[in-house]
Design a protein around this nucleic acid. Structure first.
Lengths: 213, 213
DNA sequence: GTAATTCAATGACCGCGGTCATTATATCAT
DNA sequence: ATGATATAATGACCGCGGTCATTGAATTAC
């Protein structure tokens, strides 16, 4: 009968998926990832447990999805932050500002718990052909731009590509956050980040004092 | 009766613990961590399931114990390796040799799977007041010695302590391994390690060519 | 129109890590 | 010796993530 408004099968499936997704989101928000189980989610969504697994790989992958979605949203804010910096600021200073800012955001808005879960999930499953760690794509671009500008302005070495350096920076940043997650609350994320990136900028080799202007 | 050989309670308990430990070790070796469950372990040890949890925190913590024990044993070999290097080798070169060696060992003797499990477990539980990440203590010492020697010989900057730098290096190394675990087999561990540590040694700031001897 | 096909949806079921009230026994106090 | 205490050992039990053979309803083929 319903020849007009009748949703086709794909639409229906998408609706089911979305009901599960939104139910999970709400429940997680209300009670946290640990306290909510898959049965709770499907109950609120009004579907059978099996349906959850028709639409999602696992509880963990759904959590990873939600967190990285959130992280991405937050990452978008860094661009604004960077634009707010004095336009003449040298790339190395801009980089450290950004790093400090990221530490603030992670420490205050995201929290160690969520980062820990994200990192655990990311290393815990070998499913993805690249789906993982995608959440730092935006961040990569920002690093890249700063570094690229630094190279153009001869402030950074030119024998390495900005892309290469940016990759290493993202990796280093991840190492710092991992350390922070594992050793919390022994270490302060911001301090650790800044020190590490200072090191990364200048290296540890002795500098000939004559080299300064 | 057995008034002589009769073990006291602590000895008995230690024996039970050891039987569980060894059974687990054997089974894991034979079948891998995933395929062996706690019931298998206690069955082989000839004890009840509850006993497992009298002596061990969790299956994961036992696995972490075994892996980090293994890693520690392997780390011991690095000392020999370092001693085999030409005694006059500059600290920065020695450091890169060591890093390369570590990458080889991790890649070939330990394997990505074990490292992944170790990293996952380490970030997955908030139990330890310091029990975690202890396995890299030996490695830390080696890094420290090289760096310390580099500072004394004015090859490395002297405004940072060797301890501080060594900590950052361990952290960086962990970041590299994490990346490798997560992105395997896209990236080559050795190449990644060496490049990253070269960066860490020299920094990314442009070098005045006049600075060279 | 009808049969064949496809795939979302279902929920009983399973495996496994982990718990806990209870039991057994070595050690200690008297 | 005897009762009190501490703790190792037990195993039935639970919660939860995940599975899979089966069902039901669109979609396609004829």
């Amino acid at each position: 009968m319903q020849r007009k408004a009748g949703p086709n099968r794909k639409e229906k499936a998408a609706q089911t998926r979305n009901r599960i997704y939104e139910s999970a989101k709400q429940l997680f928000y209300e009670q946290g990832f640990e306290r909510v189980n898959v049965d709770d989610i499907v109950k609120r969504a009004g579907v059978a447990k099996g349906s959850f697994y028709v639409h999602f790989e696992s509880k963990d992958s759904l959590i990873a999805m939600l967190i990285s979605e959130y992280v991405k949203k937050i990452d978008a804010g860094y661009k604004t932050f960077l634009e707010s910096l004095p336009s003449g600021m040298p790339p190395d200073e801009a980089l450290l500002s950004l790093v400090g800012r990221i530490a603030d955001v992670i420490g205050e808005s995201i929290g160690r718990e969520h980062m820990r879960i994200l990192y655990r999930i990311q290393i815990g499953t070998d499913i993805p052909g690249g789906a993982a760690i995608d959440y730092s794509r935006e961040l990569y671009k920002l690093f890249f731009d700063i570094i690229d500008s630094g190279i153009s302005r001869r402030i950074f070495r030119s024998d390495l590509s900005a892309a290469e350096i940016a990759k290493h920076f993202i990796m280093a940043y991840r190492g710092v956050v991992y350390e922070w997650c594992a050793r919390y609350p022994e270490v302060d994320l911001k301090e650790l980040s800044l020190r590490h990136f200072q090191l990364l900028l200048t290296g540890i080799k002795a500098d000939d004092p004559a080299n300064h202007a």
